[in-house]
Design a protein around this nucleic acid. Structure first.
Lengths: 230, 230
DNA sequence: AGACGATCAGTGATGAAGTCACATAACTTC
DNA sequence: GAAGTTATGTGACTTCATCACTGATCGTCT
């Protein structure tokens, strides 16, 4: 209720397009299709053709990968004012998506048509810059995911996510969804959460996790290393 | 000795630059610094500033990430005719590298100065296209790495790598290096290899692995699923 | 209200993979 | 050929993944 971005009028370009010239922005506004997507909508799935380049005006969209085994893992989220880099890849290499995008919060999206994307890419330096920047950030963030999955302990990662995604100390999420978040199995999450509960860090209800001791939660996996007190 | 790419004369643009106009290519050739890097050289390490955009003319360069824990994992390889996308990210977001690049085979590299990179990005559509394409491919390949690390069995991944990186049925590599290749620990690789040896798939010597049964090796982890014969 | 189906969570058993702490073995150098 | 260095082998133990269930909670239909 309190944190609506001021882009509803759509006359101010989002931060990503700060360097975009007025003319291109106007053109973009005219040609792009504006979509209002309610939470839960699947924007695209694996194998889908690219419709255009989505610019998220506000809201939040989650992009996750579906492995061959059927396992899933969240790759990143696109928040208000950001572009979808996967779609860029998709548009430029004529490929199709290998991932899935799901709207998490009601979102407004400008879908920039492929032709216009290509033209702006050639003509508007500000547009180009925005696209490349979004790309760069994503490359970095994907590398972070790799490091997480490959090297970090799960209890620590879980604790981190809980703190990250909490609102007012609580989060309405199923163990299954948390498992996707971390790229692991539901049972594993359940067991770890139960352990957190035993230690008095959280309280568990069906579909709801309440954080009791945030400080201790942020220390999970840290004290593990030595096992003795300080 | 037998497979040198024909770019030593440097007058034919590499495939990635197929759409680059002649003028820009000439300019690039004049302004770029040409480096000859022997195998083993570290091109850049974590925290290094970006010197420019490297275009690998021939040879092969490995890019790997160093996790906070000190663990490493190979992200991808840049072969003859390809650009280094991490450096693009680096140049455009003014950041520094988080990874490390090591020359695997003697390589020749054109280091395109930052300023020229930016200018060509703005002026030459073919250049832009090449950069974006290399970017897109890397994004896809990083997603593949994530899937590998998160969901696939290690014995299967190891067998795959052995076949991939073999030359004449043999590969001169230490278990440690294979571990980095897969983002795991040396001991784990040693044990799996020993198991492969017991099953008669490979022969092990210090620093050398000889593939005995390639067919069976490519089936590792496939027959595992059902455990019965077909 | 009670019954049914669906989703969500808990748990044991077992195997795969990561970690720690070593013991050997093989190469290098002098 | 003795010493130092690098590569490999292994046991013990923890963490994580997978399989196969059971029990709990919720919505809804009648």
């Amino acid at each position: 209720m309190s944190k609506h971005d001021p882009h509803h009028a759509q006359d101010i370009p989002p931060p990503a397009f700060a360097n975009l010239d007025r003319r291109s922005w106007d053109e973009l506004r005219r040609a792009a299709q504006r979509l209002t997507l309610p939470a839960g909508t699947t924007v695209f799935g694996p194998g889908d053709e690219c419709q255009g380049l989505p610019l998220v005006l506000n809201g939040e969209i989650r992009v996750q990968m579906v492995g061959a085994s059927g396992n899933e893992i969240v790759l990143y989220r696109i928040k208000g004012g950001e572009l979808c880099p996967l779609s860029v890849a998709c548009l430029l290499t004529q490929g199709s998506h290998q991932s899935e995008a799901v709207v998490e919060e009601d979102s407004e999206v400008l879908l920039i048509p492929t032709v216009l994307t290509e033209r702006l890419m050639n003509e508007a330096a500000g547009f180009r810059q925005a696209v490349l920047e979004s790309y760069g950030q994503r490359l970095q963030s994907l590398m972070l995911v790799i490091e997480e999955v490959a090297f970090r302990r799960l209890d620590q990662r879980l604790a981190e996510r809980l703190l990250e995604r909490q609102r007012d100390g609580r989060l309405a999420i199923t163990h299954q969804d948390l498992a996707v978040e971390l790229g692991t199995a539901r049972e594993v999450v359940s067991r770890l959460l139960k352990e957190f509960e035993r230690r008095g860090l959280v309280n568990l209800e069906r579909g709801l996790i309440t954080i009791i001791n945030a400080t201790a939660l942020s220390d999970v996996g840290v004290a593990q290393a030595d096992k003795a007190s300080a």
